[in-house]
Design a protein around this nucleic acid. Structure first.
Length: 576
RNA sequence: CGGGGUGUAGCGCAGCCUGGUAGCGCACCUGCCUUGGGCGCAGGGGGUCGGAGGUUCAAAUCCUCUCGCCCCGACCA
């Protein structure tokens, strides 16, 4: 392709709204352009990278046993009402009405639609398993879209869904998808990790996320050298060290102590001559259906995602000071579980393991000392609601874990019968009994993966594309567009490279060298071939790789061979 | 939705406080010049100052409302 016949327009300045490096560079390189908040044009250069990733995905999905279909972007409300998500999904679901006032939504994901597809066709266990995928534009009306393709409202996603007669068969498909995802990210040349994940609003049992590692990633990953890794939202820890020995005499029953103006755990502990780990922190939360008191040891924090799952609620937030006072009878900062009978108490196991503790007394400026969990209060529920932090022991091997950051590019779930049951997607088993299909679902953010690749591969001059995702593998740069003898050599080289099957962009613009070189570095084509009168004087062109920018002078006649050899070298690096 | 900010040429910004000719850099057009890392000189085109209302002799500037966008928190591929 000749540059002058395509549509590539680079920006000299950073767009003022671009915050992260991938957004900045993709916008400047003329790959994407914003149309509205969280909604982008994929310009020709950007689309090429997207299509390359899609091609890899299609190959690996086929290898994993999934078949492509395409479902509608606009889907009727009825399907969502059947699953219950018309209510549960909330304002993130973009709802539309047609001219007859019938309700639709722009699909944010397609469990309902695909379940409908399958239930119309499947009658018998003999027809299972089914495994379908699509690459589709989705829309989620995010509260705060940002970071370009990383967190758009409209975005391209590959989503796959599998249907099985039993859990064992689901596991086979799940493992195949898991392996397929690993191959996809490996083939892209990305550094990534696979972690245990929370299932979020989609629901289900087992779940893994695929994270491209980048310091700018929005997700925190807790991991151990033994291979354990989990999203911090989900991460467990091994047995935490217990609190230090109780430093004072033990009262026979909880004893109120005046603690004026001490609200934070640190203040109270210092005031009482105790360690933070001697206190029980009591947090009052408000959900869509109730108030609850969540109990955690004073030196730890509550993991709100875990808590939300334990409570099985849609919304969860800290209660306001007024509401705390109403529910507990005491002001904010002095809540405690003793005598708290109006609301459910959820306690972390570390709290129940405390032999004795200090807590708020649900009264102004007062704490209770000598509270014994299980004797002085009984929680409605004991569940892990502890937030894992770096340095905590690994649940598998007890070594200290570390925290890294990543960009979630893939998420796979075992859904079970969450959709098949309410939507009656059933089959007859060998005994003639009607059963709901066991389902799995497998998402992969296409645009986000491209953005993550940029996030991971750039320098101060621009993008450094990994070969498999580069919009073009090779750029041929004509330096002296007004010198006929230079042009004719470049034209001829362009023809030969194309004939040899090299994916080449020919920069035939009559621009100054500086402009061209800067554009090439910004866009980040892996291989650059420069034809200029200076090199040509010695019968040479200059070949360089974007990643090291080392220039090798090569005789014109050897160019095609040298370029293909370089490409082969880059490919074999990826394969190894 | 809550809190903070911003909207002036295609892009990046100044001007606003203290009302009075709408500006700068880049990009664009013409000519000359230059040509291996964003040249130089000269000339030129381009604006409902986000929108509506108000105050005023006079509003980009002050006031009110409204819309878009951005940043900080809860969602997610």
């Amino acid at each position: 392709m000749r540059w002058t016949r395509t549509f590539i327009h680079t920006l000299r300045h950073d767009p003022s709204d671009a915050e992260v490096v991938s957004h900045r560079l993709m916008a400047r390189a003329g790959m994407i352009a914003k149309v509205a908040a969280g909604i982008y044009n994929y310009l020709p250069l950007g689309l090429r990278s997207i299509l390359k990733l899609e091609a890899i995905i299609r190959e690996e999905m086929a290898a994993a046993g999934s078949t492509e279909l395409l479902m509608p972007a606009v889907t009727p409300a009825e399907l969502w009402q059947e699953s219950g998500r018309w209510i549960k999904y909330g304002p993130e679901l973009l709802r539309l009405k047609d001219r007859h006032d019938r309700e639709f939504c722009f699909g944010p994901t397609h469990e309902e639609v695909v379940t409908d597809v399958v239930r119309r066709a499947i009658r018998s266990y003999r027809q299972l398993p089914v495994n379908l995928f699509q690459i589709q534009t989705k829309f989620r009306d995010e509260i705060r879209p940002r970071f370009g393709l990383m967190r758009g409202r409209e975005f391209i996603m590959k989503d796959a869904y599998s249907f099985h007669a039993d859990a064992g068969d689901l596991d086979i498909a799940y493992r195949a998808m898991e392996a397929g995802y690993r191959r996809i990210f490996e083939r892209c040349g990305l550094s990534y990790t696979q972690v245990e994940a929370d299932t979020g609003n989609i629901g289900g049992s087992e779940s893994h996320e695929f994270m491209v590692l980048a310091d700018t990633g929005e997700d925190a990953i807790i991991s151990c050298t033994c291979g354990y890794g989990a999203n911090v939202e989900k991460a467990h820890t091994g047995a935490l060290p217990g609190p230090p020995a109780w430093p004072k005499p033990l009262p026979a029953k909880p004893e109120p102590v005046s603690t004026p103006d001490t609200k934070s755990v640190e203040d109270v502990a210092a005031f009482l001559g105790l360690a933070p780990a001697h206190l029980i922190k009591t947090m009052i939360f408000e959900t869509d259906q109730e108030f609850v008191a969540a109990l955690i040891r004073g030196d730890r924090e509550i993991n709100e995602v875990k808590l939300k799952n334990v409570l099985d609620c849609t919304h969860l937030q800290l209660a306001s000071q007024e509401k705390i006072e109403k529910v507990t009878g005491g002001p904010h900062g002095f809540s405690g579980p003793v005598g708290l009978t109006e609301i459910r108490i959820i306690a972390d196991p570390t709290v129940m393991a405390m032999p004795v503790a200090a807590t708020g007394a649900n009264a102004a400026d007062t704490h209770l000392v000598g509270v014994v969990p299980g004797r002085d209060f009984e929680p409605a529920l004991v569940a892990d609601i502890n937030l894992a932090t770096p340095g905590d022991p690994c649940p598998l091997c007890d070594r200290a874990m570390e925290e890294r950051r990543g960009i979630e590019v893939g998420h796979i779930f075992k859904l079970g019968t969450k959709y098949s049951e309410p939507m009656h997607c059933t089959f007859l088993d060998a005994e003639g009994e009607e059963k709901p299909c066991i389902m799995g679902c497998y998402g992969l953010g296409v645009g986000r993966t491209i953005a993550a690749a940029v996030e991971q591969n750039n320098d101060d001059r621009g993008i450094v594309w990994p070969l498999p995702l580069a919009p073009y593998e090779v750029v041929l740069v004509l330096l002296n567009a007004d010198k006929e003898e230079v042009v004719s050599v470049a034209d001829e080289l362009y023809g030969k490279l194309e004939a040899a099957g090299v994916e080449v962009l020919y920069d035939d613009r009559p621009e100054r060298p500086g402009v061209k070189f800067n554009d090439m570095d910004l866009i980040g084509f892996p291989v650059r071939v420069v034809v200029g009168k200076k090199g040509l004087g010695d019968g040479n062109v200059e070949i360089s790789l974007r990643r090291d920018r080392e220039r090798r002078m090569t005789p014109v006649s050897d160019t095609v061979q040298a370029v293909t050899a370089l490409l082969d070298e880059l490919r074999s690096e990826l394969a190894s």
